[in-house]
Design a protein around this nucleic acid. Structure first.
Length: 581
RNA sequence: CGGAGUGUGGCGCAGCUUGGUAGCGCACCUGUUUUGGGUACAGGGGGUCGUAGGUUCGAAUCCUAUCACUCCGACCA
C-alpha cells in the first residue's frame, strides 16, 4: 500500500484540546488520527483507522489460529434477551437503553453473552459440535460514568469478544488455556510489554479470570507483582500472606477492661485519632456491609481494619462467600441497633458477622466506636473484648508479603487491554443452553468469554512508545511502516522519492509518501508526530551523491544513515528485521 | 450521584467585573518570499458568542432556566 500524503486526511495540530491529559489521547489528536464527536465517542480518521485495523487483523489471525470462528452480532439487542438472563435489571445505568417506534425496549450491546448464548442454544444440539468458540470484532457501547483519556476509556469502543462452549469443565479449561495462549501471542505481536494477572470476575461472574495488563505509568489499574515467584494480580484481589509487622509490638499492656471516652463530633478514624492524640492506626475502623442485599440469604457483615487502612470490598465479598456486597446505609445501621459514625464490634448486636483483617490478630489497646453517640471505647483488645473471624481483607500494597510464596510484592500500573473469563454455567443455566452428550443426555454447557479492547490496545501502545516529539509505533501496528519524505519541491526529488516508495511497496511494505508542498521542518515534525517506524528522507543535497537518509523513529538525528540508492531495499529489509518483535 | 469549573470561527484563548453591535494566535485560501527540523510579509474567507426566556433604547457581557462538556470524588467492564 502506498499513500500520497497530499491526499491523506490527517490534519496535524500544534496545539491540542486542553482536556487531553495522557500521551495517547494527546498524540492521537495531534497526529490527526481521531476526533471527538461527543464525550467518549470518536471518529477514527484514516491513520487511526489503519492502526485499529492492524490490531484487529492480528487479533483475527490469532483467534482463527486458535480455532475460533468469526461472526458478527447486532449492536442493538432486544430487551427480552437481557430480561431472560436477568441482566436487564442488574446492569444499571451503564446499559444504554432505547425504545423503538413500537415502544419495545432495546439496548446497545455492551457485551454479547445473551445473544451468543441464544444463538448456540437454538443451533447447536449435539456434543459433536463442541468445542465451539465464536468471536466478533464489533463496536460496543457502555455508558461510562466518566469517559476519559480518549480511546483508553471511551463509551463507544471497538472490542473483540469471544465465547467458548464446552461439554464439561475439563474441556472448558482447555479452551480457556487456548485463549490465554492466543492472547499472549496477540500482545507480543503488537509489540507491547504486558503481563497476565489474576483478576476479579466482577459483574460478569465466573470462577477464574486473568487480565492482560500493559505496563504503563498512566494505567488506571494497579497490579502487584511478586519479585520472587512471579505471582501477579490486580490489587483488588491480590493475596497477602502474613500480617505486616505492626506497631503493636511495642504496645503497653493496659488494663484488662476497656473504658468509654467522650469523642464529641469526631467519627472518622482520623478525627478520632486527632481528638485523642493517638496515631490513626490505633483506631479500629469498623464498616457495616449488607451481603446479598434483597435476597433470601442476605446477611450483615461488620468489617474491621486498622484506622489507616481500607477494607477491600472484593476481598470481603470473597471472605464471607457472598455474591454481592455493599456498604450499609445510615438507616440500615440504625435499624440494626447501631449508631452511624461510631460503629464498633464491642457489645455488637447478635446476628452480625464480624470479620477482621488478619493483621488485627492479637492487636491490643485499640480505640473503637461505642455504638453510642459521641463515644468510643479505649483500651480494647482484639479477641478479648470481642470475637471476630480473621481474613485477608486489606488491599495489597508494595512491600506486603506475597500470598503464594512469602516474597515481597511490588506495585505497578497497568492498562487492561484484555480479559479472559472462565464463566462456568451461569449463562447456560439462566438461558437453558444444553446439548446431548454421547449418552443422549442433555448437559448444560460450560462457557468462557474473552475480550480485547482494540482501540485501547492501540492507545496502550502509544503510552508505551512515544517521546516528546510524537508516537513511535511498534512495527506491526504502525499505520505505515515506512515514511518517505520528499524534501523540497524539486521535480527530481519528488520523482525519485516516488520511485523509492513504489519499489518498497512492491517489496510488500506499507508506505506513506510525503509529497506535500511543505517546508522540510514541517515534514520532519509531522513524521515524528505520526511515528512510522522507518523514515527515508530524499533531498536534492543527498541525491547529488546518489544517497538518501534512512533512520528509524527511535534513532536520533545523528544516528541516521546515508544509504546509496541501490542499497535502499537491502537496508530497509535489514532494519525491518530488527524492528519486528 | 456529590463538589468545582467551562461553553466566543476547526483548535488554543482574550473580551464579561464597569452593557454600546466581536478580537488575537494556530489552522485554512491567494500572492510574494524561504527550502534539511513547525520561514517571513501582505491580502482573504469563516463566528445567530451553547440554547431559551427575561431586564434594557441597546446584551458575548446583567438575571433566570436549560443543555453540553471538563476536572476532583464516589462508582465500575
Amino acid at each position: 500500500m502506498l499513500q500520497f500524503q497530499s491526499k491523506l486526511l490527517a490534519p496535524t495540530l500544534k496545539e491540542v484540546p486542553s482536556d487531553a491529559e495522557v500521551a495517547s489521547h494527546r498524540l492521537m489528536l495531534r497526529a490527526g488520527m481521531i476526533r471527538k464527536v461527543a464525550a467518549g465517542i470518536y471518529t477514527y480518521m484514516p491513520l487511526g483507522w489503519r492502526v485499529i485495523n492492524k490490531v484487529a487483523t492480528i487479533v483475527r489471525e490469532e483467534m482463527d489460529r486458535a480455532g475460533a470462528q468469526e461472526i458478527l452480532m447486532p449492536a442493538v439487542i432486544p430487551s427480552h434477551l437481557w430480561k431472560e438472563s436477568g441482566r436487564w435489571d442488574e446492569y444499571g445505568p451503564e446499559l444504554l437503553r432505547l425504545v423503538d417506534r413500537k415502544g419495545s425496549d432495546f439496548c446497545v450491546g455492551p457485551t454479547h453473552e445473551e445473544v451468543v448464548t441464544t444463538l448456540v442454544r437454538d443451533n447447536v444440539q449435539s456434543y459433536k459440535s463442541l468445542p465451539l468458540n465464536l468471536y466478533q470484532v464489533q463496536t460496543k457501547f457502555r455508558d461510562e460514568v466518566r469517559p476519559r483519556f480518549g480511546l483508553m476509556r471511551g463509551r463507544e469502543f471497538i472490542m473483540k469478544d469471544a465465547y467458548s462452549f464446552d461439554l464439561d469443565e475439563e474441556a472448558a479449561t482447555k479452551s480457556y488455556e487456548k485463549m490465554f495462549a492466543a492472547y499472549q501471542r496477540i500482545f507480543q505481536r503488537c509489540g507491547l510489554d504486558f503481563k497476565p494477572v489474576e483478576a476479579d470476575t466482577g459483574a460478569i461472574g465466573g470462577k477464574r479470570s486473568h487480565e492482560f495488563q500493559v505496563m504503563a505509568e498512566t494505567g488506571e489499574d494497579t497490579i502487584v507483582v511478586c519479585d520472587d515467584c512471579g505471582y501477579a494480580a490486580n490489587v483488588e484481589l491480590a493475596e497477602i500472606a502474613a500480617p505486616r509487622v505492626d506497631d503493636n509490638a511495642s504496645q503497653v499492656m493496659g488494663s484488662r477492661a476497656y473504658e468509654e471516652v467522650y469523642t464529641g463530633e469526631a467519627t472518622s478514624c482520623i478525627e478520632v485519632a486527632d481528638r485523642l492524640g493517638v496515631a490513626t492506626r490505633r483506631v479500629l475502623k469498623s464498616m457495616l456491609f449488607i451481603a446479598n442485599a434483597g435476597e433470601d440469604d442476605s446477611f450483615v457483615v461488620m468489617a474491621l481494619t486498622f484506622g489507616d487502612e481500607d477494607v477491600n470490598e472484593i476481598k470481603l465479598r470473597k471472605a464471607v462467600d457472598a455474591r454481592a456486597i455493599r456498604l450499609a446505609s445510615d438507616d440500615e445501621v440504625l435499624k440494626l441497633g447501631l449508631t452511624p459514625g461510631v460503629i464498633g464490634p464491642v457489645l455488637c448486636p447478635e446476628g452480625i458477622r464480624v470479620v477482621a483483617d488478619q493483621s488485627l490478630q492479637g492487636a491490643r489497646d485499640l480505640i473503637c466506636g461505642a455504638n453510642r453517640k459521641e463515644a468510643h471505647f479505649a483500651h480494647v483488645h482484639v479477641s478479648e473484648h470481642f470475637v471476630a473471624e480473621f481474613k485477608d481483607l486489606r488491599a495489597a500494597r508494595a512491600g506486603d508479603a506475597c500470598g503464594r510464596c512469602g516474597g515481597t510484592l511490588s506495585e505497578k500500573r497497568g492498562i487492561e487491554v484484555g480479559h479472559v473469563f472462565f464463566l462456568g454455567n451461569k449463562y447456560s443455566k439462566a438461558m437453558n443452553v444444553t446439548v446431548l452428550d454421547p449418552n443422549g443426555k442433555a448437559k448444560e454447557l460450560v462457557m468462557g468469554c474473552y475480550g480485547i479492547g482494540v482501540g485501547r490496545t492501540a492507545a496502550a501502545a502509544i503510552e508505551q512508545h512515544h517521546d516528546d516529539f510524537g508516537i513511535s509505533w511498534p512495527w506491526n501496528i504502525a499505520p505505515y511502516q515506512v515514511h518517505v519524505l520528499a524534501i523540497g519541491k524539486d521535480e527530481e526529488v519528488l520523482n525519485e522519492a516516488q520511485r523509492i516508495a513504489e519499489t518498497l511497496e512492491k517489496e510488500g511494505y506499507d508506505i506513506l509518501l510525503d509529497d506535500r508542498g511543505e517546508r522540510p521542518g514541517v515534514k520532519f515534525k509531522d513524521a515524528d508526530l505520526i511515528g512510522c517506524p522507518l523514515r527515508i528522507s530524499v533531498g536534492s543535497r543527498g541525491l547529488k551523491e546518489g544517497k538518501v537518509e534512512v533512520k528509524t523513529r527511535r534513532m536520533t538525528k545523528d544516528e541516521a544513515m546515508d544509504v546509496n540508492l541501490d542499497a535502499i531495499v537491502a537496508n530497509v529489509n535489514k532494519l525491518a528485521n530488527t524492528l519486528r518483535p
